[in-house]
């Protein structure tokens, strides 16, 4: 059974067919997943104020009901270092189609992973885990399992990713927290089961994993056709 709070967040997006990042993150956070500290800022003043609060550098992303893939329209700015740079980015992004403000969020360090969910016709909800970023579809270094995930499934998913040595502390780099990754994926798998057909697919890309946390830095929820 889909919880009422989540149902309400989904229904706001019903007509558009997909859930914008701020609401998507709210759903994830509500389900017990760690998401980046962010604020949806409608004007530049609000953005500067929030950036001052969380500290530079910040990440700035466009919010627009017309834009599904933000990077394709220069709608993502990383490492925005100060107020001047933030103002410039804001002005540039405000010309993007459907502009409804920007997300300002903390900059996190760690490995970039992708976690995804798809409603498969033959197997129902399935979960995907792999190396993240914008080039995921080139490397396709991913593992897929049927939800709900069992703990053993998560271990085997991590092992079957070719780049898994990078996650385990490659050449002196610190390993990512497997416990945090497990918690994140189990919560995600639970949510996937809860959606029960209401959602077609989800991309959490990137999920930033470091020694202590696994934080969803961007999320896109595609709703099922009614």
């Amino acid at each position: 059974m889909l919880r009422e709070e989540i149902k309400a967040l989904l229904s706001e997006s019903r007509e558009r067919g997909w859930v914008m990042e701020p609401q998507a993150k709210e759903i994830l956070s509500f389900s017990g997943m760690d998401v980046t500290e962010f604020m949806w800022c409608r004007d530049a003043g609000e953005a500067v104020h929030f950036a001052d609060k969380i500290g530079y550098p910040v990440v700035v992303k466009v919010v627009s009901p017309d834009i599904i893939h933000k990077s394709d329209v220069s709608g993502v700015a990383l490492g925005v270092a100060d107020e001047k740079a933030l103002m410039k980015v804001f002005t540039e992004m405000s010309t993007i189609k459907g502009f409804s403000g920007v997300l300002v969020e903390e900059t996190l360090k760690g490995m970039e992973l992708i976690a995804g969910m798809k409603m498969d016709q033959q197997f129902g909800p399935v979960i995907l885990l792999g190396m993240g970023g914008t080039a995921v579809e080139i490397y396709k270094d991913v593992a897929i399992r049927m939800a709900p995930l069992r703990e053993g499934d998560i271990d085997s998913m991590v092992k079957s990713i070719k780049a898994h040595p990078l996650l385990e502390g490659y050449r002196g780099a610190p390993p990512i927290s497997m416990n945090a990754l497990k918690r994140m994926l189990l919560a995600f798998s639970g949510l996937a089961m809860e959606f029960d057909g209401a959602v077609d697919s989800i991309d959490l890309n990137p999920v930033i994993c470091n020694e202590t946390r696994c934080i969803v830095a961007d999320a896109r929820i595609m709703l099922a056709k009614q």
Partner: peptide, 22 residues
């Protein structure tokens, strides 16, 4: 296809992975 997941988790990829999982 609009999401990376839907594009990478095609019917056969899912089939093969789930068979191995079980």
């Amino acid at each position: 296809v609009k999401s990376h997941t839907a594009s990478m988790a095609g019917n056969y990829e899912v089939f093969s992975s789930v068979m191995a999982q079980y």
